[in-house]
Design a protein around this nucleic acid. Structure first.
Lengths: 195, 195, 195, 195
DNA sequence: CATGAATGAGACTTCATTCAT
DNA sequence: AATGAATGAAGTCTCATTCAT
């Protein structure tokens, strides 16, 4: 379950390469060099490039699940915008976490041979995100309302994650503001019984 | 400006390869074969892999701009959800257009050497989408309201485009429904003077 | 015998390429471009790369023969150093004549497939140089003395030509001075009957 | 500093190819085959074609420096012709040493991208040759005389080296004889105080 | 656990050349 | 006389992978 120090080091380097260049344009030679060893030494720790990639994916997903749960549970009082804690931290998280960058690139452009595998794993993460969000909602909310709101929230998340990739922090902030207002309004309306 | 038949054929094949495998995993040999010629013949039409890629990008962006303008202008009567014509056609469009698939993959995971170039070009497209949407809004809408609504609309677009990539049509429909409802509600609220 | 204007232009460009890059590293595409046409157009004027090369060689040799004859015949009065007119003009000639540069490179490093052919042709030039020099000598000089002096002169020529290739004009001048002094002394000694 | 057996083998094969065909017409495939391995294996030993070439150049220069020093120091008694030991061995050396052949071809027709680098290195060799020659001269010789004689000697060397490339051993012998006589006479005259 | 050496496969690209137009 | 298109051959180089040490 737990990785040796060398394997850890390799993963740390690999995640950055995969995040920046993608699977195909990342070379094991470069990763090995970054990890302070030669190419063949990688094979003492991983069965091959695919295995390394999947290992990194596992790590990134685990980390992201924790982050999602934590940020969504952190809401103390009643927030105007549900999930705001998560949404507001996205930019900072993206900038600081190669794992998150890796995850986004990997989901949006998976290496074709592992596509199904990757998307399946990502669905697990999304499902985690979904439950964490639902648990943060008022229990009084009707189920169909809650489902709809959750779906909208996940859409907002996707929208902002994409924004992270190809826009500047300033542009992101504008977009985030708009999306959060819309989501907040939607949540408020959902809370009212008659609508 | 206009391409020779051979160059056209090459682009047609290339866009599918780039859309499916990405830049790095697409091989000129495979593209040449698909176009019914040998590898070196490509160089009679394009300076290299990069030039071919950028040409394909240009074509895809041009096509997409037309689609965006057309779908957004098509609204006859007053729609409950602004931009609904565009949003509702997304799945069908994605399934039928390699150019659209190519565009999304390219923006979300650009080859690192052309990243800036690609994103710049994409911004031109987004800006086109933005104006087309704004022109479809009621002229009576206050400017700041219109801006906010537009920003939200673009977010919804991003959100749904991402969904196209890694989810099934069924799941997409659920998400689209949720996002459209939320957007519709936001638009309705924006139309009311006091809020 | 005489070349069409286009063929002339091609040769003019080709000689510079061959002189600078050598046969193998010169590309017909580059030569064609320099001549203001496309690659296949060259074949309307020359059977192929080899034929073009040999044509250029012919031109260069013809030109060089004239130069040799002229410089060696130009001696008005009795010079201290035989052939001095030729030797003193070498640097200037080298700098100004792509044909001369081409000739030296071609003789010292001929493309292996045409080696014999090239060297044979060059021998013709050397023989021309030889007779021109001998004719410039005092007729009173004994034949064996004249032969020896001529051989030495040709050696000096080779020595200075090499110097042109890999040394600066300053260094060349030093070398030329030394060689000319030596040759002059040798000539003076040869003129004395008893030695 | 010292090369592995495989790297040695590669250099041994490469020097012959480079000497015979020149840099551009030598193919790594042929060199690899000659060394008993496949093309990509070369890259385990050299960074690329250029690096291999420069390594071979280094080896050739080292070897040649030793030869020069040795032949020039070998003179026991007072020779009529200074440096005669070196000059007389040239033909034999040329025939037997691919490194020497390589060196001459490389200096006379360097690949244009490495021209400066190559010529610089060659100057180091020439300078070695120069000092070795000067040390072999009578210490009583005046400095300016010694310098002049040395310059003439280097010229003679150049002249004979060129002869090696494009002439037969018979022709070489004639040329060598003439040059040595001239040099010998020049040396004798230099030794006399009044001149 | 690490690596030097080797390799089959395949990448992009350039080349000289041909041919129909 | 010129050229756009096409191509077989070959170029250098990178890749992920294996194996003996």
């Amino acid at each position: 379950m737990s990785l040796s120090p060398s394997a850890q080091k390799i993963c740390d380097v690999a995640v950055k390469h995969f995040a920046r260049f993608g699977y195909d344009a990342s070379s094991l030679a470069a990763i090995a060099e970054g990890a302070g060893m030669r190419k063949p030494s990688l094979y003492a720790h991983f069965a091959g490039k695919d295995a390394l990639f999947l290992q990194v994916l596992e790590i990134a997903l685990d980390e992201e699940k924790v982050v999602a749960r934590t940020s969504l549970a952190a809401q103390g009082g009643p927030a105007d915008v549900p999930g705001d804690g998560y949404l507001s931290g996205l930019q900072e998280r993206y900038d600081g976490s190669p794992h998150f960058q890796f995850l986004l690139r990997t989901v949006y452009a998976p290496p074709v041979a592992m596509r199904e595998q990757i998307i399946d794993k990502y669905r697990g993460y999304e499902s985690e995100l979904r439950s964490a969000f639902m648990e943060s909602l008022e229990p009084s909310l009707a189920e169909d309302r809650a489902n709809l709101l959750t779906e909208a929230f996940l859409g907002v998340v996707d929208s902002l994650q994409v924004e992270l990739i190809y826009n500047s922090p300033q542009t992101f902030e504008v977009r985030r503001d708009a999306m959060c207002r819309m989501l907040g309004a939607f949540a408020a309306a959902s809370a009212q019984p008659g609508s």
